[in-house]
Design a protein around this nucleic acid. Structure first.
Length: 493
RNA sequence: GGCGCGUUCGUCUAGCGGCCUAGGACGCUGCCCUCUCAAGGCAGAGAUCACGGGUUCAAAUCCCGUACGCGCCA
């Protein structure tokens, strides 16, 4: 029996959950579910100025909207004070509530001489950096506080100097990052600097808190974005200094915008929740994001939810970055929309239908209207836009009127049609079609000469659902009224 | 600037030494279906596998350089 795997997603609550974070969450979650392991959500809120409770909510809501869940981490909803409690055996899962732990290990490292206090001020460090650059040396900390004597430290402290704590890095050799996606990546220790683990404020740095928690929480696999790869040798030295076993690392390639730069705001929507409001489905997001940087041997595109879990593996992860393609996302969302039953489709579209002011329309009227254009939707938000003419009255598209209605003979056609629709019995798709086709033949016209004006008269536009189904759904009174209205429109022109 | 990562159709990717005249998907083009728009079906265009050297009987696949892109540290 192998060790049970434990993975985590560890966002900083400094904004919404963006696409890249969502993909990292998804991969961790898929891996955990696939391996029957545990998925931990840990909030890295050590950046006191930028972290906000709202961001925690945004992240929690985003992950839940995607249909993902965590086994340990914040509770699903905040308490009365707006803060989230933690659930799970390694609680708390907010780093600000774990500072005692970091202090403890910092003290231990200090005591063992594996870390030391550094009294350099920001100005001194800046000067050091400039000097190094001038001399064309790598701009790294020179280790000047490494071997201060007790007396020297006392003196500096007497001057009121604040100390940070730095980890002593090896002077030579290399640190190898064994990565499940990219293989062994090695870094020369001589080029690494003694990095800060505790800031002058007393707070832990990202790299420090991260290592302490990953170990404390029993994380076996660290699956995270590529941008953390250069941090990893430092973290590995920390594991060594603490005498801890390394987790397995897997660094995911980044997601790029269409211009090849890291995906960001200027490329359009980057927040997961924006995709929700734009009418994308969580299942689409999961499927699409899974394919950004991962694939099966046969390049399968569409996956059932369970299938995605069963087929996901780290071996299928891509080393090179992927460009986010909104066009393919749209296609995929359309696929998922088409796969739904019309009932489900309507249920899922309800929030959008209500937002469009159609909440009062009875479900039995909505359902056939929505179903009529089922294959056309790419977003849930398309639905109200495409069906509202059934319920809100016609808005004539001037172009359609010009092109289709303002033609010789249309006037008579509309008249004839109105008279015809008064009589067709029953007022249903098939009898309507038969009657109208008979009308076409009787008048010696081509079908298009009747169908197109009818469509525009009744819906206001040249494209839409199947003609006779649409007329049936409109009902006799409304259809006739719209034909007459279109006629007056013509008369006015 | 240093270090690291990456480079297969416009995009996502398959490929892990011979099955590749480089496969699939989105998009694109054409045709079919058809009352429009879609959806669907069929067909097609599209990648000298970044470039240059090696290694090998044989390289998209292995090695070394170069270029470009990106990231991290500042």
């Amino acid at each position: 029996m192998t060790e049970k795997i434990r993975v985590r997603f560890a966002p900083s609550p400094t904004g919404y959950l963006h696409i890249g974070g969502a993909r990292t969450t998804l991969f961790n979650w898929l891996f955990a579910r696939r391996m029957k392991g545990t998925f931990v959500l840990r909030i890295e809120d050590t950046d006191e100025v930028r972290s906000t409770p709202d961001s925690v909510s945004a992240i929690v809501d985003s992950i839940r909207w995607m249909g993902l869940d965590w086994d340990e981490g914040p509770e699903l909803t905040p308490g009365p004070d707006g803060r989230y409690a933690s659930k799970g055996p390694h609680a708390p899962y907010f780093q600000m509530e774990r500072v005692e732990l970091y202090k403890k290990f910092a003290a231990q490292l200090l005591e063992q001489g594996k870390a030391y206090r550094c009294y350099c001020s920001k100005d001194e460090l800046d000067a050091m950096r400039r000097q190094a650059q001038l001399e064309k040396r790598p701009p790294r900390y020179d280790g000047r506080c490494r071997d201060l004597t007790e007396a020297q430290r006392k003196a500096l402290e007497a001057q009121g100097k604040q100390a940070s704590v730095r980890l002593r890095m090896p002077d030579d050799g290399t640190t190898v990052v064994p990565d499940m996606i990219r293989g062994d990546v090695s870094f020369e220790n001589a080029l690494q600097q003694d990095f800060v683990i505790v800031k002058t404020t007393g707070g832990p740095t990202y790299n420090f808190a991260c290592v302490i928690d990953d170990h404390a929480m029993g994380i076996t696999h660290v699956i995270r974005g590529d941008e953390h790869l250069p941090n990893t040798p430092s973290q590995i030295q920390l594991y060594k200094a603490l005498g801890w076993e390394l987790p397995k690392f897997a660094h995911l390639s980044m997601i790029l915008g269409p211009d090849g730069a890291k995906l960001s705001k200027r490329h359009g929507a980057t927040s997961v929740l924006e995709y929700k409001t734009q009418g994308y489905l969580p299942e689409t997001m999961r499927n699409y994001l899974a394919l950004l940087g991962w694939s099966t041997k046969d390049s399968q595109q569409l996956f059932e939810p369970q299938e995605l879990i069963e087929k996901f593996d780290l071996e299928g992860c891509q080393k090179n970055p992927a460009t986010f393609d909104p066009v393919k996302l749209d296609w995929m969302n359309g696929e998922y929309l088409r796969k739904m039953t019309k009932e489900t489709l309507l249920d899922r579209a309800m929030p959008f239908i209500e937002a469009a002011g159609l909440g009062q329309v009875p479900r039995e009227k909505l359902l056939p209207a929505v179903a009529l254009e089922h294959e056309k939707y790419k977003h849930l938000s398309d639905i109200p836009r495409l069906v509202e003419f059934f319920f809100k009255g016609v808005e004539y598209d001037p172009k359609a009127v010009d092109k289709v209605l303002k033609k010789d003979g249309v006037d008579a056609v509309l008249d004839g049609l109105a008279a015809l629709l008064e009589k067709v019995e029953p007022f249903q798709e098939k009898p309507l079609e038969d009657a109208i086709r008979a009308f076409v033949a009787e008048k010696g016209l081509k079908p298009g000469q009747v169908f197109h004006p009818l469509r525009v008269a009744v819906s206001g536009r040249t494209e839409g659902p199947t003609l006779f189904g649409m007329v049936e759904l409109l009902g006799r009174a409304e259809a006739v009224a719209r034909l007459r209205r279109a006629k007056t429109l013509l008369a006015a022109a």
